[in-house]
Each structure stands twice: as structure tokens, then as C-alpha cells.
Design a protein around this nucleic acid. Structure first.
Length: 587
RNA sequence: GCGCUCAUAGCUCAGCUGGAUAGAGCAACGGAUUUCUAAUCCGUAGGUCGCAGGUUCGAAUCCUGCUGGGCGUACCA
């Protein structure tokens, strides 16, 4: 089944078809004039334009057919051809009752696809920071969303464990501890099992090395050389590099656990080491790639390009591989391994040209079938209070782990302040603080459209009023509280009946979860679901004010309200789950 | 320079495959409520949707130009 809106669209689509017009004109949307109707269909005017007929007459004809198809509907015409549609309270009640008895809340499933989502992508030796927040949170939400719709989703954390930063670290290490065996080319024994440094050392060394290379050409050249040697398999470097990766991955897993984000795979860039070599050779042989200025490149420009499209660099003049090389090899691997219908990249929107190049390259090289979708689902930057992006490479940025601590602390202090949960155990209080903190962070991020930049303003996000994650959790927790109290009092849920003013709008919103999910999936934009969850919370709180369940003496009404509360909870839980937000039982 | 992108209430932002009176949150002001957790609800005020044209019965939404930000523009990722 589907939402009420989809049901109506079906009826109007059929009505348009019977009038000899395309059924897409039958699209029904929520009314923009709630004073006139609950839903509206504006297709008659668009259809009249195409078919060169009178819009008002078209609307009349379609409305008449729709009335025959669904006599229970109230359909009124207005203006040049607006069709205002409302459903009866009985219809709304029946719809809600059927949702309540459906495990999927009557979600409509599309044809399942195989979808690879590439997100996360932190780098070795660099702590995750707010910038990684977006890729991780948005990507995780998308994997939950697409899985919910029945798609077969494969997620891969493409960690940066193979780039120039590795060379920088090796050089830095050699500078600090030159006597280590990793740097001695003649060394032939076994390398130490224990890492020569800690993760803290790595995180200190990386920004230093990076800053040094930026200003010092000689240092940069050495780092590039070390990278090339690493990629060519120099044993000491490989051994050292393995320590770097192991240390980092351990820390990264903790961060992702804290975020509640999971991946099916952790194939890093290094996974493609031999593949890159074979791939570049094969591209050279088949003529897709050519030598240019000492490097191996692929020309991907087209005649109709508005701007010059630079070639894709596959192999540097010094022999090293690049970002694009690994991405192309990765696509090749994913096509063979997963045979996906779509590959979605949740990566900073500033990398759009890179992806355009890579996507063109893999199509030219026939690595990807033409029917396979390649999508760069970009997102905006997370900025500091000064409106500029948090810098990642220069060091001194706020870590994701610190950020989580701050948000959690804020939730904790707020609870103490409001004297909430004072009778709860410390463990439960801590669990609540963590959940509220994560809801704060995730909702703040996801409620912005992914493409827009936003300022990371901890004070604002930590504010517990308005359109925030905690507000949603609070609403849900209130419902849980009612359910508990009702159970204690022996009040049972019953059929949803006798709908009137206080319940109607809430039930209409409850019936449109599917629409929000579809909108989010079509646009790969979780903010649609955030808006939905927020409207639902607002509408529930209104209902909560107007309809006092525990005090209601009419059993039929009380049990109907209890069912509405339960459906509200299930729906909220469902929406928040897709956003990756989990709720406590009380707070 | 060229390309992409953005400009909506005092602030932060939704809305954009064209639809009837442009929506939220915060901030401001007024009210409800001694509760099923007030981390609530209701109401008021606040706008030439950057500017100028164009297409259309109809434009915040599509097109063109302009202004002003942001980003990108072959050997970083």
C-alpha cells in the first residue's frame, strides 16, 4: 500500500488517462491552502497547456471521473483549474488503523537495486574532524534510507591509507628516529611487531609534516619520493606503514562506533595497489591513457564542454599513483565484486570536478556499464564561527571525538539543570546523555540541506528548544511515558475512531511518512525526513495538549487516542531510525 | 580569465521537475497550562524571495544579463 497522497495520485492519474491525457498530470500534493482542502491536484492546467484545451473544462472532466472512481472523496474546483481534494474522517481512520497493523507502516517498496555507497573516508594518521561528520552522518542516513526501501546496499569506508600523506609521515618518522630499521635499505631481518609510535604521536606528526611540506619544496619532494617508494613496495616502508594503518584504524573504529555508523567493508586505497598498476598498464595498452608531460593521463574533455576539462592524471611523472587512479581502480573492483546498479559517493561537493573526470574516464574505458548510475552526492562545508571551513590539513582542528564529548556534556548538564532523571541510575543517565548528544549532533547536521554550508555553532545546536534533535526525542519519550502509564492502569489500545478536529491533522501527517521517505530517497537528501519528523513532533505535541489520554473517561475515545499515540511513536521511531538517531526510554 | 554554485523575515535556514495568501526555528511581544515530563502549546509582529529583463493565464522556482559571496580550475586528497 501507499500513502493517502499516492492513493489519490493513482485515482487522478487514472482519471487523466481516461480523458486521453498522461497520467503523470494526476500527481496529487498536499494542499497549499489547508483552509480549502487537504490535498490538491494542479495537473489540469499543465495538461491543458500541452493539449491546448480549456483547463477548467479539463479539470471538470477529470474531477467527474475521479468522483466515479472514488465516490467517497470530496473534490471541488477552484480558479483556473485547481482541484481541491479532501478525504473523509472515516477514510483517515481506516488508513491509520491499517498502518497500525502493518509492520512496515505501509511503506511502498520500489524495485530493489544493488547500491554501493562510498562514504566516511577518513585518512590514516589524521583524527576525524567535523568535516568527516557530514560524510559519515549523511552517508549512514542514506544507507539506512535505501535499505529501508528494500535496496541491497553495500557500504565501503574508503579510507585514505595510501596517498602522499603516508610519504610525509615516513619522512617525519625518519627525521625523528633515523636509527629505526625501517629506513635501512640493507636491513633484511624481521621488522619489530610493535609500532614505533603511538596514535597520539601520529596525530602530532602529521600536521607538522604537512605544514613543513607545504612551505618547503625539498621536504615535499622527499615525501613524494617516499610515497613512490612505498607504493613500489619498499619493505621497510611497508612495514612502517602497516603500523600507521593499524594504529589509525583502531581509533577510527572507536569514532564510528560512537557515531553509530557501520560499514560493510573497509577497503582502503591501499587495497588497490596491484590493481592500479595493472589497470594503468592496461589503459596504456588499449590506448585510453596516453603520455603527457611525463605523466600518464586520460583525456576526458568533450566538444560541448563549456569549460576546459583537464585530463585525468593516472600516473605522476615520478611514477606515483593519484587519487583518481585509486578511484578508477576502486570502481573497477566494485563493478566486478558487487555489480551494482548505482554507486553513490557521499563526498565534499568541492570534489565535483574530480568525480566528473573519474566518471567520464570509467565510461570511456568501459569499466562501467552504461546503465549503471554513478552519482556524486556532494555536501557543503562545515564552517567555524568565522564562516570559514574548519581546516583539516594545517592541524589544530576540533576532533570529532571532542565534539561528541562536548555535545554529550551539554546534554548531561542540561539534565542536571532541569533536575530531570534525578531518580535514575548513573548508567541510565549516561545512556540518555549520549543519546541526546548524538541526536543534537546528527539532527543539526541532517536538517540542513546537504549541499548548503553551515556554521558549526555548538551553542545553537546545544540549545534544547525549537527544531532540534532533543525536541524530537522529548516528544517520543513523552509518548513512551503515556504508554507505560496506560499499561499500568490497564488501559488498552483500540481501533482509531471518531476522528475530529484534534486528531485529523496528526493522522494526516502520520499517513505521509512514505512521502517523506520517497522525497528523501529521490533527492538523496535526509533533510526532508528531518522536516517530516519535526512536523510530526509538533503535531503530536498539539494533540498531546488537546487530548488528555489518561484523564479521558470515554473508553472508546481513550483507546483510540492510545492507538494514535502508539502510531505516532512507531512513526517517529521509524523516521529517526533512518536518520541514525536512537531514542532513550525516558529522559 | 573560465566554469560550478549560492543570494528568501533582524539572525539561521527550508521550499525550487512553475500554481491560488512564500514557510519553519531563534530572537521580540502577548496568552494557555499548578501536566500524560513546561526541553510543551496557542497567538501577534516581521518579506519589493539580490537587481533588471524575458517565457507563461501564473515565476522564489525556468531562461538571459548584472551585482555580490563561496568553491573549483593537470602531477594533494
Amino acid at each position: 500500500m501507499s500513502s493517502i497522497r499516492q492513493y489519490l495520485s493513482g485515482i487522478f492519474g487514472e482519471a487523466f488517462e481516461k480523458a486521453g491525457l498522461d497520467k503523470s498530470f494526476g500527481a496529487v500534493v498536499e494542499s497549499q491552502r489547508p483552509d480549502l482542502s487537504q490535498f490538491q491536484c494542479n495537473g489540469a492546467m499543465a495538461a491543458a497547456k500541452v493539449a491546448k484545451c480549456n483547463p477548467r473544462q479539463t479539470a471538470e472532466k477529470v474531477a467527474e471521473t475521479a468522483r466515479e472512481l472514488a465516490p467517497q472523496l470530496s473534490i471541488e474546483l477552484a480558479g483556473p483549474g485547481f482541484m481541491n481534494i479532501s478525504v473523509s474522517d472515516e477514510f483517515i481512520a481506516a488508513n491509520a488503523n491499517s498502518s497500525l497493523s502493518s509492520t512496515t507502516l505501509r511503506l511502498e517498496m520500489p524495485t530493489p537495486q544493488k547500491i554501493v555507497i562510498d562514504f566516511g573516508g577518513p585518512n590514516v594518521a589524521k583524527p576525524m574532524h567535523v568535516g568527516h561528520l557530514r560524510s559519515s552522518i549523511i552517508g549512514d542516513s542514506l544507507q539506512r534510507l535505501l535499505r529501508r526501501l528494500g535496496h541491497s546496499v553495500v557500504t565501503d569506508n574508503h579510507i585514505g591509507d595510501w596517498g602522499t600523506q603516508m610519504g610525509m609521515l615516513i619522512c617525519k618518522m625518519r627525521e625523528e628516529q633515523p636509527s629505526l630499521p625501517y629506513f635501512d635499505e640493507k636491513y633484511s631481518g624481521e621488522y619489530p611487531k610493535d609500532a614505533p609510535c603511538s596514535i597520539a604521536d601520529l596525530e602530532r606528526m602529521y600536521p607538522q609534516a604537512s605544514a613543513h611540506c607545504k612551505t618547503d619544496e625539498v621536504a615535499m619532494a622527499e615525501a613524494v619520493k617516499a610515497t613512490d617508494e612505498l607504493q613500489k613496495g619498499r619493505a621497510g616502508y611497508i612495514a612502517l606503514w602497516k603500523h600507521f594503518v593499524a594504529l589509525s584504524v583502531e581509533t577510527l573504529k572507536k569514532d564510528f562506533d560512537a557515531l553509530g555508523v557501520r560499514f560493510d567493508h573497509w577497503y582502503g586505497e591501499s587495497h588497490y595497489t596491484s590493481a592500479m598498476r595493472e589497470l594503468t598498464e592496461s589503459l596504456r595498452r588499449n590506448g585510453c591513457a596516453v603520455e603527457s608531460e611525463g605523466a600518464l593521463v586520460m583525456h576526458v574533455a568533450r566538444e560541448d564542454d563549456k569549460a576546459p576539462m583537464p585530463p585525468v592524471l593516472l600516473v605522476k611523472s615520478g611514477g606515483g599513483f593519484l587519487y583518481a587512479t585509486s578511484d578508477i581502480a576502486t570502481i573497477d573492483f566494485r563493478m566486478k565484486e558487487f555489480a551494482p546498479d548505482r554507486i553513490i559517493y557521499v563526498v565534499d561537493k568541492r570534489q565535483s570536478q574530480h568525480f566528473e573526470q573519474v566518471f567520464r574516464a570509467v565510461r570511456i574505458a568501459s569499466i562501467v556499464k552504461s546503465e549503471t548510475g554513478l552519482e556524486h552526492t556532494g555536501f557543503g562545508t562545515v564552517n567555524g564561527p568565522d564562516g570559514k571551513p574548519f581546516k583539516t590539513r594545517a592541524g589544530g582542528v576540533m576532533r570529532l571525538s571532542d565534539l561528541i564529548t562536548m555535545v554529550t556534556d551539554k546534554a548531561r548538564s542540561r539534565m542536571t539543570e532541569a533536575e530531570i532523571g534525578s531518580n535514575l541510575s548513573d548508567a541510565e543517565k549516561e545512556d540518555i546523555a549520549v543519546k541526546v548528544g548524538m541526536a543534537t549532533l546528527k539532527f543539526a547536521d541532517l536538517s540542513n540541506h546537504r549541499l548548503s554550508d553551515y556554521v558549526f555553532d555548538l551553542e545553537k545546536f546545544s540549545c534544547f528548544e525549537g527544531k532540534t534533535g532533543p525536541y524530537l526525542l522529548y516528544t517520543a519519550v513523552r509518548i513512551k511515558s503515556i504508554m507505560r502509564k496506560a499499561a499500568d492502569a490497564g488501559f488498552a489500545e483500540g481501533p482509531i475512531t471518531g476522528i475530529g478536529e484534534p486528531e485529523r491533522k496528526l493522522l494526516l501527517i502520520l499517513a505521509s511518512l512514505t512521502d517523506a521517505i520517497n522525497a528523501a530517497a529521490e533527492n538523496l537528501a535526509p533533510n526532508f525526513l528531518c522536516d517530516y519528523a519535526y512536523s510530526l513532533a509538533q503535531e503530536f505535541n498539539r494533540f498531546y495538549n488537546d487530548c488528555h489520554i489518561m484523564r479521558e473517561e470515554n473508553v472508546e475515545r481513550r483507546s483510540s487516542w492510545l492507538s494514535i499515540a502508539k502510531l505516532s511513536l512507531l512513526t517517529m521511531e521509524s523516521a529517526l531510525d533512518i536518520l541514525g538517531i536512537s531514542m532513550p526510554d525516558r529522559m
